[in-house]
Write a protein that binds this DNA or RNA. Structure first.
Lengths: 315, 315
DNA sequence: TTGTAAGCGTTATCAC
DNA sequence: GTGATAACGCTTACAA
């Protein structure tokens, strides 16, 4: 018991004991068993993150932000990736809940009722990140993808484009893209416009898919003069393909993406896109979760991290 | 006890009991406490991964590969990122070892003696991934970065470049880049060449850094005709800057990167780079670790995942 | 096939 | 400031 105290609250023991313990710990290479500690203390110091259907760079940045906040406070971040669908996520939640996490961060807002029930039953604070919703399980940090779509609709209309198309990849798992599409429709509607073509594909989010989209677009009977793609990867794929085909961007066809990765600013012309603070979103998600874990805040927290439309050379 | 059995080895109990348990589990929303289970069974079903100084896409892909292998076998993957230096890694290892992992995957081979000692003392199987070494702690999965550098040196020399430069970003934490530089020197030496300029910067790995490198290069008294950059991000930054400045690539200056991300194939001209199987590397690391955990293999396993030089338009 | 007993390595609690 | 004791929720080992 004295050792346990010396390790966790050194000030509560005499300096003699403190040093004796420190020496023994060093000599023995002692490392506390977190399973025993967690069991006895009834707290895990564990936060689980379940990442579904988002690109590597988004989740890596967001995770980094979350980790920065949580680790210094003694929390460990347990990650489950690879959940492309709400059903896969459900299994991941069931597995991770066994680790008695003190808090859970989930990506997106799309999940099964069973997942919701499990989370409620476990009584764990939950933060749903990446996208705002009116009906969060608990708390919510992200941006309003519909607003982002509206902003893009207005931008394209403002720049004088009239025959606007939407092309999306991986729309079987990127539910947020649908909301941006919805927003695009709303933004265009303000100017009396309607998308001339909407393509929702399940193709992978690769530059090749973007290239294919561009070729389809050029052949399209609707003859679009601008296209909003569901993310930067396919948007860049489309842009580079246009350049290969000698199609002038934005004169012949304007191209816009979503994500705001660094590389979009570096290419020629730089890509018009929508950026949001990924790392900051991770940080805010972690901070909000901590507020909930430590009962400093009631359920229902909502943090809008906003977004920024970067109007650049491709539109 | 019967419940425990019904859950872990359903075949060992009667179907009557099995169903009664299943019903109760459902009704109560029971989830086994992994802390209690781990403590009693003296096994954690946990594998920890410590990621140091690599880009988001590399580690995301590799992690995905590892997760694919481990999760179906009931292992959980606990990740610690954010260790840029061996000292940070040392702290991460100390913290994670408390979770009694059954295996540990580390990125790279650069670490402190204290880290090595802790790992040895813990008696955990260890896989060092990403880079091959002759002195692994336990087992090793990756590629030989020196060979990759040699391949690039030969390639550039073969294509007739004679005034070859190396520019590296983040070389305070990307130790593998040094080995590629070493390889480049060796590869060039075969043809009686020596790099005309070697720049090892601690600047961040961003396209802007690449752009700055290119401008420096053009002003360089050594007048390089080709440059091997330490990764694709800065290589693309350099390429795009060259295009903005109207500098012909590869005629005036050839550009090569390292990494082999998808986007390098999509740009114009496509970037010469070196690709390795990231996801496969993660899978192999996990499989090797499993072999060690389950004592199917002795320490000292070594898996070379190889690499591929993609000779493309920028050289 | 089911159940009993002991103990995993720590921490909460309370007495000294 | 220190230490004894009783959990924590499971699994191993063994008995019935």
């Amino acid at each position: 018991m004295t050792v346990s105290r010396a390790l966790r609250e050194p000030d509560a023991v005499s300096s003699r004991v403190r040093e004796k313990v420190a020496t023994a710990v060093r000599d023995l290479g002692y490392l506390p068993n977190r399973f025993a500690g967690g069991l006895a203390a009834r707290r895990s110091r564990l936060v689980t993150v379940i990442v579904s259907g988002i690109s590597a760079s988004v989740y890596a940045d967001a995770l980094r932000g979350a980790d920065e906040v949580l680790r210094p406070l003694g929390y460990e971040v347990l990650i489950s990736q690879l959940t492309e669908t709400p059903e896969q996520e459900e299994r991941a939640v069931a597995a991770l809940l066994g680790w008695q996490p003190e808090g859970v961060i989930l990506s997106g807002i799309e999940r099964t009722d069973a997942t919701r029930r499990m989370l409620h039953a476990a009584g764990v604070p939950v933060v749903e990140a990446l996208e705002l919703t009116d009906t969060p399980i608990d708390s919510n940090v992200g941006l309003d993808h519909r607003s982002a779509g509206i902003a893009m609709g207005r931008h394209l209309a403002d720049r004088g484009y009239r025959r606007i198309a939407f092309y999306g990849a991986r729309l079987d798992s990127d539910f947020r893209a649908f909301r941006r599409l919805e927003g695009l429709r709303a933004g265009l509607a303000e100017c009396g416009l309607v998308p001339v073509r909407v393509v929702c594909s399940e193709a992978p989010s690769t530059p090749e898919t973007g290239a294919r989209f561009l070729r389809e677009l050029l052949d399209d009977a609707a003859a679009p003069d601008a296209v909003f793609l569901s993310n930067d990867t396919i948007a860049m794929g489309a842009l580079f393909e246009a350049q290969r085909l000698g199609v002038a961007v934005p004169e012949r066809i304007a191209i816009a993406g979503f994500g705001g990765s660094d590389i979009t600013a570096a290419i020629n012309p730089p890509l018009t896109t929508i950026r949001f603070a990924r790392r900051e979103m991770g940080r805010r998600a972690a901070l909000t979760l901590l507020d909930r874990i430590e009962r400093r805040a009631p359920p229902g927290q909502r943090v809008d991290v906003g977004f920024e439309l970067l109007a650049r050379g491709t539109t």
